[in-house]
Structures are given as structure tokens and as C-alpha cells.
Design a protein around this nucleic acid. Structure first.
Length: 563
RNA sequence: UGUCCGAUAGUGUAAUGGUAACACGUCUGAUUUUGGUUCAGAAGACUCCAGGUUCGAGCCCUGGUCGGACAACCA
């Protein structure tokens, strides 16, 4: 590397967008300024696909010493709400990005956008059309057949201007008239066939109230908003690619600053849906418990589930950015959170599906405090004490009455290590005479094998986690599985709804126990329950009632081998 | 029977005319008081097809094939 080049040129582009930007920088386009924006519509909660866009836009700005704005695209009062504005702000901040004082709303520019409309009318490039929505649709043609021109297309500039002003003044009912760009009804690009610029809506806007009764269409607002904010690179998803000629047309006719739009492929993940419409439907019809249900791919859902901002940023980074359609395996997301939490999450013992274990040769009423390592991956994290006594709970899955020879855990006559405690041997089991269910497992321990003593180095095949029955804290533990059973939930036969792919077992609520050291835990605290997975204290949790979400299970080569 | 866009291991993403690489996943083995982690290794791609340009093509050109987007007074 030579050091006489600007810093920007030293970094290898990591994706095609950065390659374009670096080429622009080389040409000193826009005075080598890089300014991006994240432009959500406040009509729903942000999801992991938005996170990809947020990371791309803010990340790109940071990489090239530029800026990134947060702008709410609020041009449709009937769908938008402050609840969504607030959640979007929270989510972007939580992900770790800061837009400083650059928080904007498309509605901030309504007056300016209206001026743009008058400008086009005066240039003879826009006209008021009295056709109904149905008539306009009918005259639009099809992708392979040209449309026909509106009978109102050639109104005079004076008449158009008068009509437009009276539209704004509220003289006409909703749907009576629209403002259209006068472009080309025969264009092979449907978006160029005299697209709508303004429509009449008497809805109450979450910011401008009842000031306006005409609202710009997205296509007539978005490009100009970018221009007003001097956005150099307008990064958006592929479906807007065919809109680009229209945005460029408006910018050219208006003679305003031209942002460069670059489109990338939106994120898809296996076993989930990613459209706001479908996510809204799942929420509204109570298929999930709200936007932040830990099964949702929303940012708020992932947060509640126990994902960290770092893990999501890293995920966004390694999935890359390209133009081809893609479906990311959900196991990659899971890899990212495991990798992050492995380093950070304190280890703790918790039993999710408990069965009682009695150490028959251990003195009744005796308690010992065992030394436990908080995180073997983090030497700084220290140790803690865990109470041990005669009656314990262990995981039901850790015992098998008739084990295969690959089963390293507890079985009649077999020895196993209790982590941080003793090596025990199973002597007998007690069953419920009615159901045949195992109610107690009776073992003996070898006092010489206490963890740390010489005898404890004896080799045994398995090590189990446990909690002391008299000391452990009761907890509700929520086990999540994928929301959909099918890798592509939307891949259904004609007439079949994607919701038939919903996984009926996506949530299992367990009554379990955790070691006492977790008392006082607060929502969003993260733990690794040894041998089980990563867990996060839920927002329903409090000092009287502990509730944990399983973020993700540990990799489990035992259960995999059993399939 | 239109316009635009795309096509590289199972899944993603690199390779910017010069030996197809990386991550996840999969499979071995070692270590391990987490069947986790870590470490070592393996398998897996005639780069959609056919032509062309070139000493040389995943990359450039032409034609096909397949996939996606576009016909809301949504964004």
C-alpha cells in the first residue's frame, strides 16, 4: 500500500455499490462527497431486511467519511402512524447507528414538492386528469400494449394551474381529480405512462394534520426528497429499478440536484417471511404476540429474542450485497448470534425439562458451595458459587433407561459427572405407577471425586448440568422454533395460503429451574444455560416471576446424530 | 409475446482479461468437567448453454435458456 493516496482509495471495494462509489470518488463526482439515507415508510416495524439496508447505508457513509440521513417517507397519511416512527427510531439506534440532527420527513418538504408540481404544470409537463382510478388503469395499457392518452391530457397550462390550486384548496372530493406527469403513454416502461403525481386524500396526517388534502405519490416525492437532501447515492432495492427513469425524468425537468440511484437485491431468509404486509397480517390476526414476538424477523423481535446489535451487523456484513435474488440460510443468522454470545454470555446452569435426582448417600440437609466458571471464553469474567445438595434437578433428556452405546449420559448402573461437583452413579429409578413416567432417579456419589480433587480427573463419558432442588429458582422458559415449517413459506400451491405453513410448535412454554445466581436479572440480560443454548431474560420477567427466551440452542451433534 | 435486471460448490459472496477464493452448512480427526468452544483436515464448481474476440474469458461481444421485477389514486 502506498500512503500518498487518499484513505478512501486504499480500501478494496467489498461490493458493487462500493465499487461504483469509489469510481465516483476517483472522478471527484459531487466533490467526492458521499451522502446516503435510510428512507423507511412509517407503516410497520422494521425487519432484518431493513437492517441490511440500514447497515449498508450507514456503513457506506461511515466507510467513505460521509453522512447518512434518516428520512421517513410519509406521503400516505392513511397508512402511517407515530407508533411506527418511534419504533423505527428505536430500532436504528439500537442497531448502533446515529443520524445526529439529520432526521427528516418527506412531509417536511410538502410545500417544496408542491412547488415542483406547479413548475411542471407551467412547463406543460403535467396536467390535471379527471378520469377515475378505474379509467386510468384501463387506459394504462399492458406491458406489451401501449396505453391511450387521457382526454384531459391537453388542457391549457392556465386551466391545469387553476385546477391544481383548487385541488389543494379542497374544492373537490377524494378521487375526483389527480395530477399526472405528461410523458409517454406508449412507453415500454409502464411507469412512464403519464404517472400520477398527486391525489386527493382527506385523511389526517400524523405530522401535517389537516393542512393538506392532496398528497404526492411516492414516485413524485422520493427522488426529489433525495435531491433536496443532496443525497449522492440513493441505495434502494431492486423493485425500484424500473422507476429510476421516472425519477431521473423529474430531476431533469425540474433541473435540481441529481442523486444516483443504485439498486440491490433484498434479503430473504429461509423459514420466514419478509414482507411488511405479511408481518402485519401475522400481528393483526394474532398468529404471533405482537411485532416484537421473538419469533418475528423484526428487529424488535430479534432484540427480544436475545440477538445483539453486533450479531446483526456482522450478519449484514457477511451476507454481502449483490443484484441477484438470494435466500440466506437461517443457520447463518444463528451462527452469527452464537459466535457473538459465546464470547459474551455468562454461563449459568438451568434445567428446562426437569426430573428429580436424589443422591442417596449424601447427607440430608447439607449444602455445599461449588466453584463455577462464569465464562471459559473470557478469563476476566471470574467465578461464582453454586449451591449443591442431596436433591437436584437434571434434564430429563440426560437420562435414558435403555441407552444406546453412543449415549454418554446417565443410565442405570452408569457413571456421569455433575459439572463442578461429583461423579455419580445411577442406582435405581422411581416411576409413577399410573403413567410409568420417571419421577426420581436415585444415585450415589463418590465424595473423593469432588471437582478440583485428584480423583475428579477420572474419566467419565458425560458431564451433566444440574440445579439444587431447594435452592433453584423457578422460571418460565420459552423455547422457540422456526415460525414456518417450510423453507420457503410462500411456495404454496394455487389457492393455498402461506399461513398453512405456520409451525404449530414454534413456541413451547416450559416450567424449569435456574441456579440462584441469576436472581435480579433484568430484561435483555443474556446467558448461556450450560449445554442447552443462549437465553435472554424476557420483558415479561420481573423479580417475582422469571421468564427466559431461548435465543438459539447450542450446536448439538448428539441430537443431529440421532436423526 | 414489451422493457429492465440477473445467472460462480448445498446456501451466500469474491475473483475488475492471467492457476476459481472466502464464509456458513456437510463430513473426518484431536482437545475439552458444556456432545459447546478451539484446533487440524476433507469432500463439494466443466463459473446456465452455444458461438465469437483474445496468446489467454467466470469476466468482453452476439444469440439462446432459465429466473426475477414492472400494468396500486401503496411504498
Amino acid at each position: 500500500m502506498s500512503d500518498n493516496k487518499p484513505e478512501n482509495e486504499l480500501k478494496a471495494p467489498t461490493n458493487f455499490i462500493h465499487a461504483i462509489i469509489e469510481e465516483d470518488l476517483r472522478k471527484v463526482k459531487n466533490d467526492s462527497r458521499v451522502h446516503t439515507r435510510f428512507p423507511p415508510e412509517p407503516n410497520g416495524y422494521l425487519h432484518i431486511g431493513h437492517a441490511k439496508s440500514i447497515c449498508l447505508n450507514f456503513g457506506t457513509a461511515a466507510k467513505y467519511n460521509g453522512k447518512c440521513n434518516l428520512r421517513f417517507d410519509d406521503t400516505n397519511p392513511v397508512k402511517e402512524d407515530v407508533e411506527y416512527v418511534d419504533s423505527i427510531r428505536d430500532d436504528v439506534h439500537w442497531l448502533g447507528f446515529d443520524w445526529e440532527d439529520r432526521e427528516f420527513f418527506a412531509s417536511d418538504y410538502f410545500e417544496q414538492i408542491y412547488e415542483f408540481a406547479e413548475t411542471l404544470v407551467k412547463k406543460g409537463k403535467a396536467y390535471v386528469c379527471d378520469l377515475s382510478a378505474e379509467e386510468i388503469a384501463a387506459q394504462k395499457g399492458t406491458p406489451t400494449r401501449p396505453g391511450t392518452e387521457s382526454p384531459y391530457r391537453n388542457r391549457s397550462v392556465e386551466e391545469n394551474l387553476d385546477l391544481l390550486r383548487r385541488m389543494r384548496a379542497g374544492e373537490y372530493p377524494e378521487g375526483a381529480r389527480v395530477l399526472r406527469a405528461k410523458i409517454d403513454m406508449a412507453s415500454p416502461n409502464m411507469h412512464m405512462r403519464d404517472p400520477l403525481m398527486y391525489r386527493i386524500i382527506y385523511g389526517h396526517h400524523h405530522r401535517t394534520g389537516d393542512k393538506w388534502c392532496i398528497y404526492p405519490m411516492y414516485d413524485f416525492a422520493h427522488g426529489q426528497c433525495d435531491s433536496i437532501e443532496n443525497i449522492t447515492h440513493s441505495i434502494c432495492t431492486l423493485e425500484f429499478e424500473v422507476h429510476r427513469p421516472l425519477y431521473d425524468w423529474f430531476v431533469k425537468e425540474l433541473e435540481i440536484f441529481p442523486p444516483q440511484q443504485i439498486e440491490f437485491a433484498r434479503l430473504n431468509i429461509t423459514y420466514t417471511v419478509m414482507s411488511k404486509r405479511k408481518l402485519l397480517e401475522l400481528v393483526k390476526n394474532n398468529f404471533v404476540n405482537g411485532w416484537d414476538d421473538p419469533r418475528m424477523p423484526t428487529i424488535s423481535g430479534l432484540r427480544r429474542r436475545g440477538y445483539t446489535p453486533e450479531s446483526i451487523r456482522n450478519f449484514s456484513d457477511i451476507i454481502g450485497v449483490a443484484k441477484r435474488d438470494n435466500v440466506i440460510d437461517v443457520s447463518l443468522l444463528e451462527f452469527c448470534i452464537r459466535e457473538d454470545l459465546n464470547k459474551k454470555a455468562p454461563r449459568v446452569m438451568g434445567v428446562v425439562n426437569p426430573v428429580k435426582l436424589v443422591i442417596t448417600n449424601y447427607p440430608e440437609g447439607q449444602t455445599e458451595e461449588m466453584n463455577a466458571v462464569n465464562n471459559p471464553e473470557d478469563p476476566e469474567s471470574g467465578t461464582r458459587k453454586v449451591q449443591f445438595s442431596r436433591e437436584l434437578y437434571i434434564e430429563r433428556d440426560d437420562f435414558m433407561e435403555e441407552p444406546s452405546n453412543k449415549f454418554f449420559r446417565l443410565a442405570p448402573g452408569k457413571e456421569v459427572r455433575l459439572k463442578y461437583a461429583y461423579i455419580i452413579k445411577c442406582e435405581s429409578i422411581v416411576k409413577d405407577p399410573e403413567t410409568g413416567e420417571i419421577t426420581e432417579i436415585h444415585c450415589t456419589h463418590d465424595p473423593e471425586t469432588l471437582s478440583g480433587r485428584e480423583q475428579s480427573s477420572r474419566k467419565v463419558k458425560g458431564t451433566l448440568h444440574w440445579v439444587s432442588a431447594n435452592h433453584a429458582l423457578e422460571a418460565e422458559i420459552r423455547l422457540y422454533d422456526r415460525l414456518f415449517m417450510s423453507e420457503d413459506p410462500e411456495d404454496v400451491e394455487e389457492g393455498v395460503d402461506y399461513k398453512t405453513n405456520l409451525n404449530p410448535d414454534s413456541l413451547k412454554v416450559m416450567k424449569g429451574y435456574v441456579e440462584p445466581s441469576v436472581s435480579g436479572t433484568k430484561p435483555l440480560d443474556k446467558f448461556q444455560f450450560e449445554r442447552l443454548g443462549y437465553f435472554c431474560t424476557d420483558s415479561d420477567s420481573n423479580d417475582d416471576r422469571l421468564v427466559f427466551n431461548r435465543t438459539v440452542a447450542l450446536k448439538d451433534s448428539w441430537s443431529k446424530a440421532n436423526k
